[in-house]
Simulated scan of single mutants.
Amino acid sequence: MKTLGILGGMSWESTQSYYRLINQGIKNTLGGLHSAKLLLHSFDFADIERLQAQQDWDSLADMLAEAAVSLEHAGAQAILIATNTMHKVAPEVASRLTIPLLHIADAAADELQRNGHKKVALLGTRYTMQLDFYKKRIHDATGIEVITPELAQQEEINRIIYEELCQGELLSSSRDFYYRTIDELAGQGAEGVILGCTEIGLLVSPENCTIPLYDTTDLHCAMAVKWAAA
């Protein structure tokens, strides 16, 4: 089994999901008493969010790259960034490593393509929805069209992520808003929805949606398990 390095704490709520899902995946794959070989660098999310708000991506790239390199030196054989938004700096992080960086958008793209989708919706932080680093990677890899909600809906989705989900709050009013937004996107032709923030899966569930949900936390962890157990 290979050792995975995780850049986490962005937020810790989703990082604990990574730890659980990867260990469950290794257990299911290898059986017995097997558990995952993991190294974790957990950031103080307040520091990350402050730089995000300033759109200081250079400083963020340096922070994550330095931590990733330290995990490589400690024995990690591949790196996971346990958040969608911070894949904005994935190229800069990868360029500092001699080991693979397993990209979360690639995990989503593979599953979307496997299911034959032509048009999907993306929910996430405003950075993930508005910048091209995520949508373009999926489109370039698969040709799938990626749409996002209207601007006012994006702002509310973003607010819920930072003010509620990243602080452990799961409100029914916010859940209802997400479901209404998904229904509108389905009406615009979306055949599925990428949950492009690792906390959104804590709030919404597939059984309450009219189109498939693609939880990127689940998909990223499945990619990591397959790589580590191979």
Rank of each mutant, 00 (worst) to 15 (best):
D58S: 14
A109D: 06
P100I: 09
I194H: 05
K118A: 08
S95T: 08
C197Y: 03
K2F: 03
G187N: 06
V225F: 04
M86G: 05
Q54V: 04
L33W: 10
A222H: 08
K118E: 14
A141V: 01
L122W: 08
C197H: 03
S17P: 00
T128E: 07
G32M: 12
D58T: 15
I144T: 10
W57V: 10
K136G: 07
L51V: 08
E13Q: 14
A46W: 10
A190Q: 06
H103N: 08
V69L: 15
T85H: 03
Q55M: 13
C166E: 09
Q77S: 09
L185I: 07
D218R: 06
E150I: 12
T83F: 00
S205L: 01
L203T: 02
T181C: 15
G168A: 07
N23M: 08
I147F: 13
L71S: 04
D62P: 00
D62C: 05
A107T: 11
N23R: 05
G25N: 06
A94S: 12
R96A: 15
I160C: 09
L30T: 09
H220F: 04
I182P: 00
H41S: 14
D110V: 13
L185M: 15
L64I: 10
E150W: 05
D218N: 06
T29P: 04
A109L: 12
Q77F: 07
H41W: 15
E49Q: 15
Q16V: 14
F177K: 06
P149G: 10
M1V: 13
L51N: 10
G196W: 10
L165K: 02
L102E: 04
E191T: 03
T29F: 11
M129C: 13
H220K: 05
I79L: 05
A141L: 14
E164Q: 12
S14M: 03
L40K: 02
I157S: 08
R137H: 11
N84V: 13
Y18S: 03
